[in-house]
């Protein structure tokens, strides 16, 4: 059985726990064991904390990496922000002896040492590389036939490409392939690689309207593409388009009602897991139109 150390981060377990539920139930069904990381904390945030103090960011990330090293397991993250932080820190510490030296000096305060013997993967990367779209297609029991899906990658799932080294940094296809493995169709649309604007929510609170405008551009294009829903793999992007949609409707007097799914939720449905066991009712954007189209509601 393939095993990973599960890095939960903050946002999913403490604000969007239904994403944790879907991820755990689906991975269990696919025969991937996820082991808890005792004592792990915030990754920390790749946008805010890295921008304030690179050294602290790197040292706190290294502490999390050490926990998985002690478990002798590669890390699996559910969040693209955690992915960016932990994968970048792992890369920088493995390739920069001076960083490793300095960080290990800090870590000696807590009797830890970064060794550099594990890998960091995002759940989508594991699905695509360790299992593969073909095998997923074989495993599903309830193909999502006729469902038109707009995929949203999330900036840090592919960039900086020098560090992430997974997919094309500006024209990736892995998520589209994974959507089509479910029997659904990935629809092309303009602005597919546009950032969701989540970074601004923390670093520039006064720019809320601009951040919402950024998300709105994408919602407009997805609406034009006639997609039934959008799918993504990051809790920050999820909030931008899920709760974000309600904020956009209020601010710009619009009436978007696009269902938003974390990819594992769609995969869960295709594996025959019920929408209630996936906790889909906790989405702010209502998913019922999609469930109806699939004959599940």
């Amino acid at each position: 059985m393939t095993k990973f150390a599960l890095f939960l981060g903050c946002l999913i377990p403490l604000r969007l726990p239904f994403i944790e539920v879907s991820s755990r139930r689906v991975m269990e069904k696919l025969g991937i064991e996820l082991v808890e990381m005792n004592g792990a904390g915030c990754c920390p945030d790749p946008i805010g904390i890295q921008s304030i103090d690179y050294k602290t960011w790197l040292a706190l990330a290294a502490r999390n990496l050490c926990i998985a090293e002690e478990m002798n397991l590669d890390i699996l993250t559910l969040c693209i922000g955690c992915y960016e932080t932990l994968k970048t820190a792992n890369h920088v510490l493995n390739n920069g002896p001076e960083f490793k030296y300095e960080v290990n000096e800090i870590l000696s305060e807590v009797d830890k040492e970064f060794k550099g013997n594990i890998q960091v993967k995002h759940i989508i990367e594991v699905l695509y590389e360790d299992i593969g779209p073909k095998e997923i297609e074989n495993q599903i029991s309830m193909p999502l036939e006729g469902l038109q899906v707009a995929t949203h990658y999330g900036c840090h799932s592919v960039r900086p490409s020098e560090i992430i080294q997974f997919g094309n940094p500006e024209r990736p296809t892995f998520l589209d392939e994974l959507v089509e493995a479910l029997g659904a169709q990935s629809v092309p649309y303009l602005e597919k690689m546009l950032c969701c604007g989540a970074g601004l929510r923390n670093t520039a609170k006064e720019k809320e309207e601009e951040a919402l405008s950024l998300a709105k551009v994408k919602l407009d294009e997805i609406q034009r593409s006639k997609a039934d829903c959008m799918t993504l793999s990051c809790p920050f992007c999820f909030i931008s388009y899920d709760i974000g949609q309600l904020q956009i409707n209020r601010k710009f007097k619009e009436r978007y009602n696009l269902p938003v799914f974390y990819y594992l939720e769609l995969l869960g449905l295709a594996l025959g897991i019920s929408s209630s066991r996936l906790g889909l009712k906790f989405h702010r954007s209502k998913v019922t139109p999609v469930l109806k189209k699939l004959g599940l509601a």
Binding site: P13, P17, F18, E20, V21, D53, V110
Partner: peptide, 30 residues
């Protein structure tokens, strides 16, 4: 959120090792 996790059938959220985190932060003067 504790109640919501419970309702979803999730295990209790394991808190981080805050002592270690604070020691690191003290050292970097963050």
């Amino acid at each position: 959120i504790k109640r919501r996790r419970d309702e979803l059938g999730l295990m209790e959220f394991l808190p981080p090792n805050i002592e270690e985190i604070q020691k690191i932060i003290k050292k970097t003067k963050f």
